[in-house]
Simulated scan of single mutants.
Amino acid sequence: MSETIIERCAARGLRMTEQRRTVAAVLEQANDHPDVEILHARASAIDPRISLATVYRTVKLFEEAGILEKLEFGDGRARYEDAEREHHDHLIDLQSGAVIEFVDDEIEALQDRIAERLGYELKGHRLELYGIPRKRSRS
């Protein structure tokens, strides 16, 4: 991924206000899967004039333009990540809510084999695993 979120917004003809630029910059720096409230907290730390409503509208605009991907992990919170990030899957910790990104070559190959066996060429997928940490035995 070579272009920034702001560059992709410009390429899609989106009007970029200073507040939208701030939200885009916050998203660009995110290494997690923030929801709108977290994005608002981060953006308002940079520009206190940014309202929660502005962040909601900006995220919706970016999602509709294919710049952001909306993720829903069953906890009632929509989270977001850059739609052009490198492919990865997610493991969601049901106790803490942490979202762990991973790539597994065996899973990728298995999905390709399944699609081929069923007569399809795989063009994409989304894998979400849900779990709780295993208790470690005390030795």
Rank of each mutant, 00 (worst) to 15 (best):
V55L: 05
G131N: 01
D35R: 08
E86T: 15
V23R: 08
F102G: 12
E72G: 10
L118Q: 04
H125Y: 15
I67H: 03
H88K: 09
D47S: 09
E81R: 13
R8V: 08
D105K: 00
H87V: 12
S96H: 02
E128H: 14
R8T: 11
D104Q: 04
T58R: 07
R79V: 02
Q19M: 03
Y80F: 13
Y56S: 14
D75K: 05
I67P: 01
L94T: 02
A115G: 03
F62M: 15
H87F: 11
E18K: 12
L129M: 14
Q29A: 12
E63G: 03
E63W: 13
T4W: 00
L127T: 13
R20I: 01
L122R: 13
A24R: 09
G13V: 09
R136D: 04
E81F: 14
G66P: 10
E108K: 03
S51N: 02
L14H: 11
R117F: 15
G97P: 03
E116S: 09
A53M: 13
D112S: 11
A45D: 13
E18I: 03
A41R: 15
E64G: 05
E101W: 12
E101P: 11
V103N: 04
I38M: 12
Q95Y: 00
R85I: 14
L94G: 01
V103F: 00
S139K: 13
T58Q: 04
E86C: 06
Y80L: 06
K70H: 13
Q111W: 13
Q29K: 08
R15C: 12
G74P: 05
G97M: 06
H40V: 07
I5Y: 00
E128Y: 08
T54G: 07
G13Y: 05
L91K: 02
F102T: 09
H87A: 09
E81N: 05
A53R: 14
F73R: 10
E69S: 10
V99Q: 14
L39H: 06
Y130N: 04
A115S: 11
T4H: 00
E64Q: 02
I114Q: 15
A53P: 11
D89Q: 07
A43F: 07
A30M: 05
H125Q: 11
H40E: 13
M1L: 04
L94K: 01
A53F: 04
G13L: 15
R85V: 15
R49D: 13
Y56T: 07
H40T: 14
E37I: 13
S2P: 02
L110K: 02
T22M: 01
K60E: 09
R79S: 05
R85C: 14
I114D: 14
E28W: 00
S44N: 02
D89W: 03
D75L: 07
T54V: 08
R85F: 15
P133W: 07
E121L: 13
I50L: 11
L52N: 11
V55G: 04
R85M: 14
Q111A: 15
L94R: 01
P133H: 14
M1I: 07
R20N: 03
L71G: 04
